[in-house]
Design a protein around this nucleic acid. Structure first.
Lengths: 199, 199
DNA sequence: GCAGTTCTGGACTAGCTGGTACAGAGTAGC
DNA sequence: GCTACTCTGTACCAGCTAGTCCAGAACTGC
């Protein structure tokens, strides 16, 4: 019936996400995007609306992927390893080129694009979803006797998210792997000690 | 001998710092600065060189002020309160308008200006200085018997900085005071428990 | 008042910004 | 081939970007 699109839309969103993730919303220009996606302005606006709309789509993709990744790491025989495994995988289990990107949701909060209420809310909601998953898992851990019932799981999850945010900032320091490893270890030295020692 | 400057230079740097702190380097345009400082372009470039040079000056001012503030909170009779007092003062002991700004050093790491190696290094060095002060104070705490000698003070300081970074991200969420308070409390519930319980 | 100096504000630049308009290309059904 | 449709690349736009230039203002010492 009509001329078909010459590029794979969802693939383009994934590429754009990588760009935004690395350089931020404001610092990524339309020309940067067009070059990376190998499309013209006409195609861009027809397919994605505008830059900000595409960004929200990338942010949604990032949230979804993060939640999927996290969910896949849940181990019923040892729920309390989740934070540990999550940090290990998302910081060191990625190609070096992505190591310094941090987290798109955290990055969004510090970009001026966060002045857009809808974008800000989306980043906040994404982080809240991750936190919610941690609460669920900690609840399971309590049910399975892997975490003492005296602990407030919501408070624990909040704390893990604080560590998460701190680590994502540290990623952006572009320091050596050893430095980042020391930071992670300092955090993990607290977590398992507290968690395991209290069940 | 020559025409005197009509504005107070260091006052202007302080004002510019507020702007950069709130909106970020990239999102703060030269026009924004000129308007806020009530000066013309000629005066600006004569006094500050260029935008990035002014930024480094603002960043230095921020680091210095942070260190001063931190130093002033050190209490020899209870060294381990420092992190606690620091977060309390810099997050809740400021006018509401500044609450959401976070930390200029952390913000710098997530701004595209961090692609400038010198700026990146300055932000990293600033955070390292703060961390260094914590190490010193924790060492003092050990010397005074307020912290068990089995603890690695460097590792503790690293952990406090991770919490710090996490909290500064949370500030940018623009949530209610109550939300932020809950985050801080979740973090503090860990710290004093670990610190005090181990001396 | 004059000379020497620096400061000031505005005109100006080249280049980039996100976004629009549109002519023409490519496709599917007929 | 024709029609109806969408996609594609490009020319174009107004507005903003950081930064330069310079004539004239303001001051000090003489």
């Amino acid at each position: 019936m009509s001329r078909p699109r010459e590029f794979d839309r969802s693939n383009s969103v994934a590429i754009a996400m990588q760009l935004f993730w690395q350089r931020g919303y404001t610092a990524t220009s339309l020309d940067n995007l067009l070059t990376a996606l190998h499309i013209g302005r006409g195609s861009f606006y027809a397919a994605f609306g505008d830059k900000q709309t595409l960004y929200t789509e990338c942010l949604r993709l990032f949230c979804d992927r993060t939640l999927d990744e996290l969910q896949a790491l849940v181990q019923p025989h040892d729920y309390m390893r989740l934070a540990d495994d999550f940090f290990e995988k998302t910081i060191f289990g990625v190609p070096k080129s992505r190591r310094f990107n941090g987290c798109l949701m955290v990055n969004t909060l510090l970009d001026s694009v966060a002045e857009e209420p809808l974008v800000l809310a989306q980043a906040n909601d994404g982080l809240a979803d991750v936190e919610g998953l941690f609460v669920k898992v900690f609840d399971c851990a309590q049910g399975a006797g892997q975490l003492g019932s005296q602990h407030d799981t919501a408070s624990l999850a909040r704390f893990v998210m604080l560590i998460n945010q701190g680590l994502r900032v540290s990623c952006r320091k572009r320091r050596s792997e050893r430095y980042l490893r020391a930071e992670l270890d300092s955090a993990l030295a607290f977590l398992p000690g507290v968690f395991i020692g209290s069940c």
